[in-house]
Design a protein around this nucleic acid. Structure first.
Length: 464
RNA sequence: GUCCCCAUCGUCUAGAGGCCUAGGACACCUGGUUUUCAUCCAGGCAACAGGGGUUCGACUCCCCUUGGGGACGCCA
């Protein structure tokens, strides 16, 4: 059987971290087995679905590089399929019309909750042999319900959780078409997963309880039941569920916040899945290794520190042109143009080693393009009246120096020697004068990159 | 309330009955490299939720307790 997996988000919000991992695992499973990955947009909830959300999801997938072989397919464009299957179930007696009103159902639910029992449909309109149904009310539009089997159990071997078994007595008759005729989630999923030939349904943990109903419907339709893999959820850093006001942010927010997609992907891959002691790997490697057997069934807490560590790693190792393009954009956002000298690639080659965040990296190197304003504390501390004459003398030497790293280095170290100083005594004031702060890579390297004219001018401005 | 699921260092995890004196990674601490900071390198701290079984032997299998999560919509 050919492997076909799917990612089926509902466009009611952006693509968040949990959805991204679900998509990643489905994508990787298809890749691993030479199958197809389908993107299906579950937009049957007209009230809450928006085109903006669709776009946000597409953008997120695109940024992460989770390419789909088919789709995006929209459920709203597949109405005739659902209608056909609905008719099939109605005709075969696996579904029936129910005239119970919403209010009626609400009252029922309230009563059941108060009695401490599981809220469920009471089966009022469920046709039964020898049962006489109530008289059909004149002005109510009926919903269609699936006639769930009443006895026995539904069980399946979940590919991550193992055997799961739920008694049919726990299940009531779900509404599969609303009174306006539109099909509901559980039914659309069943029709789509079977018609699209999905072989492995990889989805969030929260769907475990929908699975037995879906299996019953698939059986009633006479279709093949796919394999299921239910991924546990991703918790916030504090162990709490992610919610809108609590950590559930769009994956695009991570882009904004200075993360590389490579880092997010690698991090997500290791959240709930493992391959021995391997921690750092690219997506090609991941797709080769990925399997459902090594997914943890328990929930995982999101850990920003580890993400930062991976981000630092990828900042160090990705293609320098990619990094340059990214940082150039981030500098733009800071109002800094990196189009002039020094070449950003040269700067990044020196600075990428020390960064763990793209925004941080961009703001750290901004002083190559915009003269920094030094903090008065640093100026006071390092640019002392004793050192100024030394710097003045060095400035003169620098003017006659060939602008190469070795020569610059020589000037700095001779200054140290000639004045019998400790290296930092010279390096620190230099740093403050050149970059505005007391931390930077080797001053000679910074000087080499900054350029002669700029270096001379920046030093001079402190010696007037 | 009912049903379902889950449970190894602070966090992510390895672990398919003896390989476990429980391994790796992040974080943290210490030391080294370094021109400051960072990087990098070396070392260290740190866990099988509790109780019963099964077995010659249990982190691994079973049961219970506890704790956590999820589901119970004309939402998906």
């Amino acid at each position: 059987m050919t492997v076909r997996t799917r990612f089926a988000p509902s466009p009611t919000g952006f693509l968040h971290i949990g959805g991204a991992r679900t998509a990643l695992f489905s994508w990787a499973y298809a890749k691993k087995h030479g199958g197809k990955f389908v993107l299906r947009v579950e937009d049957t909830d007209l009230a809450r679905s928006t085109p903006e959300a669709v776009q946000a999801i597409l953008d997120g997938m695109d940024w992460l590089g989770l390419t789909y072989d088919e789709g995006p397919l929209y459920q709203m464009q597949r109405m005739e399929h659902y209608q056909k299957r609905l008719d099939q179930l109605l005709e075969s007696g696996h579904a029936y019309y129910c005239y119970s009103s919403k209010d009626e159902l609400d009252v029922l639910r309230e009563q059941q909750k108060q009695q401490g029992v599981k809220p469920r449909y009471d089966g009022k309109w469920r046709p039964e042999e020898g049962k006489t149904l109530p008289e059909v009310p004149a002005d109510t539009k009926p919903v269609v319900r699936f006639k769930n089997p009443q006895g026995g159990v539904v069980s399946w071997h979940d590919m991550v959780k193992g055997k799961i078994e739920i008694a049919n007595t726990e299940l009531d008759d779900v509404i599969i078409a609303r009174s306006d005729g539109t099909p509901t989630y559980n039914f659309c999923v069943v029709v789509d997963d079977t018609e699209m030939g999905i072989s492995q349904v990889i989805r969030g943990d929260d769907h475990v309880n929908n699975t037995p109903r879906q299996i019953n419907m698939i059986n009633a339709l006479g279709a093949t039941v796919p394999q299921y893999a239910h991924l546990s959820m991703i918790l916030g850093a504090d162990g709490q569920k992610l919610s809108k006001r609590h950590g559930a942010v769009s994956v695009m927010q991570y882009h904004e916040d200075g993360y590389l997609p490579e880092a997010i992907l690698n991090y997500l891959a290791r959240l709930g899945w493992s391959h021995g002691d391997d921690e750092v790997f690219d997506m090609q490697q991941f797709c080769e290794w990925f399997d459902l057997d090594h997914i943890t069934p328990s929930a995982a807490q999101f850990n920003t520190e580890k993400l930062n560590w991976l981000n630092a790693h990828y900042i160090k190792t990705i293609d320098i042109d990619v990094l340059s393009a990214d940082i150039t954009q981030r500098l733009d956002k800071l109002g800094v143009s990196a189009k002039m000298e020094p070449p950003i690639k040269r700067v990044l080659e020196l600075y990428r080693e020390r960064a763990s965040n793209l925004n941080q990296l961009a703001s750290d190197i901004a002083y190559f393009y915009v003269r920094p304003e030094a903090h008065s504390d640093d100026v006071e501390k390092h640019i002392t009246s004793e050192i100024k004459p030394v710097m003045q003398k060095m400035l003169e030497t620098l003017k006659n120096t060939v602008w190469e790293l070795e020569a610059i280095h020589h000037v700095v170290s001779s200054t140290v020697k000639e004045n019998s100083l400790k290296f930092p005594k010279v390096a620190m004031p230099l740093r403050v004068m050149l970059v505005g702060i007391a931390q930077s890579p080797s001053v000679d390297e910074v000087m080499a990159i900054l350029g002669k004219e700029e270096v001379l001018q920046r030093i001079e401005s402190y010696l007037k």
